[in-house]
Design a protein around this nucleic acid. Sequence first.
DNA 1: GAAAAGAAGAGTCGTGGACC
DNA 2: GGTCCACGACTCTTCTTTTC
Length: 589
Amino acid sequence: MVMRIILRLFFILLLMDTHMDFRILIWNTQGTGSREFLHTLREHLRIQRPMVVALLETHVSGRKTEKICRRIGFSGRFRVETQGFQGGIWLLWMEEKLHLHILDVHAQFITAEFTAIYASPHLSFREVLWNKLEEHASNVNIPWLLAGDFNETRNLDERGHGGHDMAQPCTRFSNWIENNALLDLGFSGPKFTWARAQNPETKKSARLDRALCNLEWRARFPEGGVRHLVRNQSDHAPILVSTKGFTTRPIGPKPFRFQAAWLLHQGFDEEICHAWRYASESALCDLAEHLMVWNEEKFENLFQRRRLLWCRIEGIQNRLAKGGPRYLLKLKRKLRGQLDEDLGMYLGVSTLSQRVNKKTFRYVVERLEKRLAGWRTKCLSLAGRVTLINSTLTTIPTYVMQTCRLPRGTCDEINRKIQRFLWAGTSTERKPHLVAWATVTRPLREGGLGINSMRELNSAYMAKLGWRMVLEPKALWAKVLKQKYCKEGIGYYHFSPGCKPSNAWKGICEVSPILQRAIMLSIGDGRNTLFWSHRWATRRPIIEAGDNLVPTEDQKKLVADYWQPGVGWKWKDFTSFVSREVQEQITSI
DNA sequence: GAAAAGAAGAGTCGTGGACC
DNA sequence: GGTCCACGACTCTTCTTTTC
């Protein structure tokens, strides 16, 4: 059996191109069921581009497993199912680029072109693994790589929390490596691949994940190396093994690329006028150079920003591994929060690329809280508080509200904070509200305090956006929305959410009944306007104001159908169905 | 006693992904 | 591009609690 495996492995490895960068991502995920895990994994895949992924301690079994694997997106899959809630190894690879041959399977490892390892936390089970691998190592004289979570360290230096009782297991593991003539591929990046507890006093960390190889593998891939990636979503950091190592490549200047988003910036036209002074041979090059600088100043590159965040977290983890100062823990949490929740801002507004929920607009509430924190509520009179609410508090969310539909929960939370401030309460202390909120939000002339309710304010801004779309049909943003969501039809904008609408479009659709009431069509030659069901002469469609029931076959007639060029309206065709008042309004057009 | 906040539960909606 | 599905988030309703 062992000989058959070895022979197959030998032929496979002969086919493996030594010049090809064969990258393997190995990660002890401690559960693959969460949406956050998928986001983080996709981020690693996008940046690191591995051809093979080994996920350890997956915690998921049954039908859900296949579903998650499909979401991850690799065409080649092999799994060792979990035992109860423990263990689980998933091997995923790009079938179109390479084919992995599964040679040996065990609860703690899968051997294909390399061996993916998840060593049990229990010593007795680990002993079984070491024996199995030892048997394999003694029969192998071809390149062999083992990578994964070994749940062991080679010496106390690989542990960040002391513990002299660990000395003996360390020695045992170290001896095992030497006895089997294996080499540690080393690493770059943070020192420890596992950490638990955020409190510095109780924090434990260690290098539990690693890659080992035999001499043959090292001879075949002399540049091969391991990189510890940034730890996120799991106590373990993913490790990346590359047969070509991680030397930095010289990066040349990027060619100029025009970005359509520039057209949306108000200052773009001015910038072009400023940069384009005279036509010459170098004018275009000068313009391109100028625009690239301008782009860096005005627009943020989201991917660059996220890369920067990953680098900062990696640096902090490096520093913490060497016993860095306590404030770094706080900074790391903050950066992780930015990475998880904030995909970036554009012109001060969050870019909405995920599901919009209360978390998405948490920053708006936080801005409000920050402003409130600076005010001494009890030192202000009621009139003073009302003035501050109208002049400052209600204006904080307005900028975001102009282009985004805020969740009702967010609007209610802002309302609650304003209410508490108005009635001199604080975030912890509640005070009785002397008048109902519905009364407070009425206009002054109606006995209220003229304070805007967030839901109504947001609806008003969405209606304004829709109205601008009607008034400025040639604006680029309006063209995009119309092209994407408005169905082909005669006359009106059809405010229908359609398939997977954006947040702004949903907001516009919600207030569309208000908009539709206000829109009247300019009939032109009458070939784009329905005589009976569009609003073109009266505030309501003529069919609703009609005295008699309009025949069904007539209901789809256009205005042009009732107009005779050079003669006028064909009154006899419709006067029996409309009132005298409507007739007068039609005549007045 | 009045008004709002808070809690709990039921029902609805929205999203991402799969599929055609 | 449209439809369907599962699941989580959100909304609404009702009742209780809080605060003066």
